[in-house]
Structures are given as structure tokens and as C-alpha cells.
Amino acid sequence: MSIYTVLLFGITRDLLKEKSISLELTEPPTASDLLKHLKSSYPALQNLPSLRLAANHQFPEAEDLILPGMEIALIPPVSGG
């Protein structure tokens, strides 16, 4: 089991009322699977189709593996000005 910590940005921080969340996974997930997993574990995220996942200061491709120890962040678009 590996622990993944996910930083929350923008509205995700307001929705989950946390700055980061942690989850335990047996196998390294792909970027798209990790995002799906997060959305099913935290239903409040399901209404955010535009939400992006970043890992190690990059936006990964959907099939890229996310490895333990990477800095993961959830980034929604923001619009205020």
C-alpha cells in the first residue's frame, strides 16, 4: 500500500473544506484512473467536469502512471477578475 497526498486548489478546497487529502492505493494508478477514483471517493468533486489533475508540476497524459511520492494537485479552472 502506498499513500498518495493530493493538494486541493480553487473550488475543490471549498468543497472538501481541506487543503489536501490522502488516500491509500495498492497499485500506481494512471492519471485518469486516479481522477476517477477521487471523484468516486469524494462525490462533491463530481460536478466539476473541467477539473484537472497535475503531478510533479506537469499535467500528465491520461494514461501516465502516477507514482507514490509525486506531488499531486487538483486544479479547477478559475474565472474571477
Partner: peptide, 24 residues
């Protein structure tokens, strides 16, 4: 970064979320 325009209720704007002036 964000391929599709978010839906109307997806992301709040300044008027809804609030802001202190120094940030913009």
C-alpha cells in the same frame, strides 16, 4: 489546460466567492 467551458453552476465568480482587492 481546460478544454471545455465550465458549466454555469460549476465554478463561482468573484461576486459569489468573495475577494480581497490586493489579489486581483
Amino acid at each position: 489546460f481546460f478544454p471545455e467551458e465550465p458549466g454555469l453552476d460549476e465554478i463561482p465568480n468573484c461576486d459569489d466567492a468573495g475577494v480581497l482587492g490586493f489579489l486581483p
